[in-house]
Simulated scan of single mutants.
Amino acid sequence: MTSTPLLEVTDLTVGYVTPEGERIVLVDSVSLRLEPGEVLCLVGESGSGKSVTMLAVLGLLTPPLTVFSGSVRFRGRELVGADDETLRRLRGAELGMIFQDPMTSLNPVRRVGVQIERALAVHQRLDRKARRQRVVELLAAVGIPQPEERSRAYPHEWSGGMRQRAVIAMAMANDPAVLIADEPTTALDVTVQAQLMQVLAEARARTGAAMVLITHDLGLVAQHADRVAIMYAGRVVETGTVWQIFDDPAHPYTRGLQRSLLGGDGEPDGRAYAIPGSPPAPAQRPTGCGFAPRCEFPGKTAECDTNTPALIALDTDHALACPPAREAMRTTAPSGRQAAS
């Protein structure tokens, strides 16, 4: 890892204050780092805080959501508290965003090409002819057939997969250094998913962009991630390289997610495994470890219900927020892991 990461999030806490004055926390003391050119995957069930974390990074939180505390630095520059003009210059130019539903990103009454052209006009001094040519090049790069003709169509005239390709083209229009993809393939069939992820990989290869991929699909994580951050109830509970997370998962939640995969270790009677219970609502999160009410780890202790565990490094790039799991690893791991933990 470099001494100064491309993007660094430190102790970020996001939430809102109710009319009664109660403070509700959605993202709790999250720390992440993204190195140049790498893919960081944020993984967790719905409501774990993945998307809110990245919206805070981009300065796209809408009231009443606000950043309570913490830092977001892009190339060493603080973004929390930055003015709207500074953030507008960065969004689309240095920080690109692909949202989950392309129909919420595309204006239904404007032609697709015009919308991509607008992304170029905001950040680059190109004449209209050059912008139109760039739009055609971008659409061709993301696999749109007859890109010049298709650019004159409206979003409703495109299929879901084509619309998502258009959103990718828009996000990559200005060759951003960081691309944030919020579950970009959720509503698509597996064949189109694979095609779109290949498009993203090729686009990143051309520009050298780093990427934060928000997903609950562990298959995508295994294929595309360099590092992984597992989130639960607004907190990061485990981080590591993709190999550490898949080959040596430590947190009970990470193990539960893996066991839930089709083809994984199911129930003794042959049924697919599901983590018991449901994630807590932000206003009803338990004291102590947020995962404690659902945890099946044999080493679970009474302190899990009262003490909020800190994220502590196990080795160079593997960190864990679970004291019982750390203790279990201390007693069973080789001497190198014992010393690190």
Score class of each variant (00 low, 15 high):
49 G>D: 09
12 L>C: 02
39 V>F: 02
83 D>A: 12
255 R>H: 06
200 L>A: 02
219 G>V: 09
240 G>R: 05
123 H>A: 00
56 A>D: 09
300 K>D: 12
322 C>F: 04
76 G>Y: 06
245 I>W: 06
341 S>C: 13
141 A>T: 02
99 F>Q: 01
123 H>C: 01
331 T>I: 11
281 A>H: 11
287 T>Q: 12
181 A>E: 07
303 E>F: 08
20 E>K: 14
319 A>N: 07
174 N>L: 08
307 N>Q: 13
42 L>V: 06
330 R>K: 13
130 A>E: 15
212 V>P: 08
197 M>L: 15
169 A>W: 00
113 G>T: 01
250 A>F: 07
264 G>I: 10
317 D>V: 15
57 V>C: 13
25 V>Q: 04
164 Q>K: 07
56 A>M: 05
116 I>K: 00
269 D>L: 03
248 D>R: 14
34 L>A: 10
87 L>E: 06
307 N>F: 11
32 L>P: 07
57 V>Y: 04
334 P>F: 06
93 A>K: 15
235 R>I: 08
41 C>N: 03
247 D>C: 13
270 G>P: 00
72 V>W: 03
87 L>H: 04
329 M>D: 10
139 L>P: 00
180 I>S: 09
285 R>P: 03
22 E>L: 14
76 G>D: 07
100 Q>K: 01
258 Q>D: 07
245 I>V: 15
103 M>S: 10
96 G>M: 05
301 T>N: 08
61 L>M: 02
262 L>V: 15
166 A>H: 03
241 T>R: 09
153 A>K: 09
279 P>S: 02
53 T>Q: 03
268 P>K: 01
299 G>V: 11
207 T>L: 08
98 I>L: 06
202 E>F: 05
133 Q>I: 06
103 M>Y: 13
27 V>I: 10
239 T>I: 14
4 T>H: 11
172 M>D: 05
158 W>K: 06
221 V>R: 03
182 D>Q: 01
295 C>D: 06
313 A>H: 11
178 V>M: 05
243 W>M: 10
213 L>T: 09
240 G>E: 08
269 D>V: 02
234 G>I: 10
208 G>Y: 08
222 A>T: 10
160 G>W: 07
272 A>H: 09
257 L>S: 04
331 T>Q: 11
198 Q>F: 09
179 L>V: 15
297 F>T: 14
76 G>F: 10
169 A>Y: 00
237 V>Q: 03
156 H>E: 01
192 V>L: 06
149 E>M: 10
176 P>F: 07
331 T>S: 12
238 E>I: 11
43 V>T: 06
151 S>D: 02
129 K>D: 14
264 G>K: 09
129 K>I: 13
71 S>H: 12
208 G>P: 13
208 G>I: 13
200 L>I: 15
177 A>I: 07
